[in-house]
Design a protein around this nucleic acid. Structure first.
Length: 478
RNA sequence: GCCCCCAUCGUCUAGUGGCCUAGGACGCCGCCCUUUCAAGGCGGUAACGCCGGUUCGAAUCCGGUUGGGGGUACCA
């Protein structure tokens, strides 16, 4: 097994799925190896942080460098000598030849920019030299048959494969060559990669044969597409694994979802830990049609995984959003015991961990969050003012035990006196205290918030309501 | 253009000639529960691209067609 990404951008979900499939296969055998090779030969487009990102992302998915099945990372750039050596050998064996044609010359001869190389230098016997690239001599007749574990036999007529370049004029190897040379060196026997590489397979198989090695087992995975059914692109689609991680997707959920893109454990099962999938995974069972990356379903999976956590684990995993830089409240305001008190209530309400923030911010913010739409919806002066006044009066009673049930009873009673059912009566109170019409169960929230802060917020809301009523009516909002 | 891949509900898929009046999941809709919102429960919506074959019988096999997609670099 091997996974050979190129560090030319943020690590994305397609690469993650390929890595996972490779990983599952490697784990199936005691001596299975998952070789991570960073293909960094395109110096202009590589950056060290991308490489670090790949390793970090793999670790997040559970593909850990600490595992004995993991090997690497190797860096392709370190094997340049071997690449050149192999290119030279291919030339000496007559399997490749030098060519000094420019792209313009080829096009001029063929008259069509889409037609490939015409073999002009095939028999010119050019020696190595400046301006001369090395081309592989594709055999004259017959096809190369790629035996793909997912797609079956795929035939490529040699007449349709041009004599492709394997080394640039400066001697540096191209992907097709470097990739094969490294795989040969590293003893890779199974290549599982995206469908976009299918057209490289016959060329690489020819190279393996030219080097006197049996070609590896090939498996070309269906591409992952966007809603327009185009291959996911780093430019236009949200594909970075890191962005999902930042939003609060659980690695377990991401892994589970990704494994289901093109494959399934069978028996109508979907939610399943990776470890249980490993023994069940078979390349032969992988689908060959492209799959849409459905974030809605990913979210549903994530919700399932979040709800399956126990409270401690849930709190633990929410911590980065609660105590990190992004938290909207002053760090000193954070109170873990308050959080723990409402955590079970929040757990079934968040689909991604990041959503914990708007659910609990009323506990840690000095003022409730400002949400104009909520205010406009719940704070209709004719009902909100009397309701808040009544609630305030009842809740201010020092003999009232400050707990969810008694508080609920008071608010309910205050509403009843005004002819409001609890559903209506609680709305202004909720907005006054939390800033929003939706959120955690209100009375449990008030219990945790405490009497003082609750009363203060009710007063503040009432004051604002009165100010708006007596203020400039022409500027009132609908 | 050329080469190659693909084709079941909106989406991910089950299905490998009769078990299919096509199953599951996400989504969507409705109902129940309910202090909001979720979660949960119950129910519903919705698909074999098309045309020919083969066969007693086709979502399943074959051919064609249409439609998607990938590749077509001295990128990876």
């Amino acid at each position: 097994m091997r996974f050979a990404p190129s560090p030319t951008g943020m690590f994305h979900v397609g690469g993650a799925r390929s890595a996972l499939f490779n990983w599952a296969l490697a784990l199936q055998q005691a001596d299975g190896r998952f070789v991570l090779r960073i293909e960094d030969t395109d110096a202009a487009r590589n950056r060290p942080e991308w490489t670090e990102g790949i390793i970090r992302a793999l670790a997040w998915l559970g593909i850990s460098a600490d595992d004995p099945h993991f090997e690497g990372p190797y860096f392709q750039s370190a094997y340049a000598g071997k690449h050149r050596e192999t290119a030279e050998r291919l030339y000496k064996d007559g399997r490749a030849y030098y060519c000094d044609c420019t792209r313009e010359q080829v096009q001029e001869r063929r008259g069509n920019p889409h037609l490939g190389y015409d073999g002009f230098c095939r028999d010119r016997g050019l020696e190595p030299g400046p301006g001369r690239a090395l081309r592989f001599r594709v055999p004259e007749g017959g096809p190369t048959v790629v035996d793909d574990r997912i797609r079956g036999r795929v035939e490529f007529e040699h007449s349709a494969i041009e004599d492709f370049v394997i080394a640039r004029a400066d001697g540096s190897p191209l992907f097709v060559l470097a990739n094969v040379v490294d795989d040969v060196e590293m003893g890779v026997n199974t290549v599982v990669r995206g469908e976009e590489h299918l057209s490289n397979a016959p060329k690489q198989q020819l190279l393996w044969e030219a080097l006197g090695r049996p070609a590896p087992v090939w498996a070309h995975l269906p591409v992952i597409v966007n809603e327009k059914r185009q291959k996911l692109s780093k430019r236009r689609d949200k594909v970075a694994l890191e962005s999902y991680q930042d939003e609060g997707f659980l690695a377990e959920a991401m892994v589970n979802y990704l494994m289901l893109l093109g494959w399934g454990p069978g028996e109508d099962r979907e939610i399943m830990p990776f470890a249980d999938m490993v023994p069940l995974f078979r390349l032969e069972d992988v689908n060959s049609s492209s799959a849409f990356f459905d974030e809605k379903k990913l979210r549903a999976f994530n919700g399932e995984y979040i709800r399956a956590l126990d409270t401690d684990a849930f709190v633990e995993r929410c911590r980065p959003w609660l105590t990190g830089e992004s938290a909207p409240w002053p760090a000193a305001n954070y109170d873990e015991s308050a959080l723990r008190a409402v955590a079970p209530l929040a757990q079934s309400r968040v689909a991604v961990l990041g959503e914990i923030v708007p659910n609990v911010d009323f506990l840690f913010l000095d003022e409730p969050a400002e949400d104009d739409r909520s205010w406009a919806k719940a704070m209709k002066p004719d009902t909100a003012v009397p309701m808040l006044e009544a609630a305030l009066e009842r809740l201010a009673d020092p003999s009232l035990a400050w707990a969810a049930e008694p508080v609920k009873a008071e608010v309910e009673a205050a509403g009843a006196a005004l002819g409001l059912k609890l559903g209506k009566a609680q709305a202004p109170v909720r907005v006054a205290v939390t800033g929003r019409t939706v959120g955690l169960p209100l009375f449990e929230s008030l219990e945790v918030l405490g009497r003082e802060r609750t009363l203060r917020r009710l007063e503040a809301a009432l004051a604002r309501l009165r100010a708006e009523a007596t203020g400039a009516p022409d500027s009132a909002e609908g």
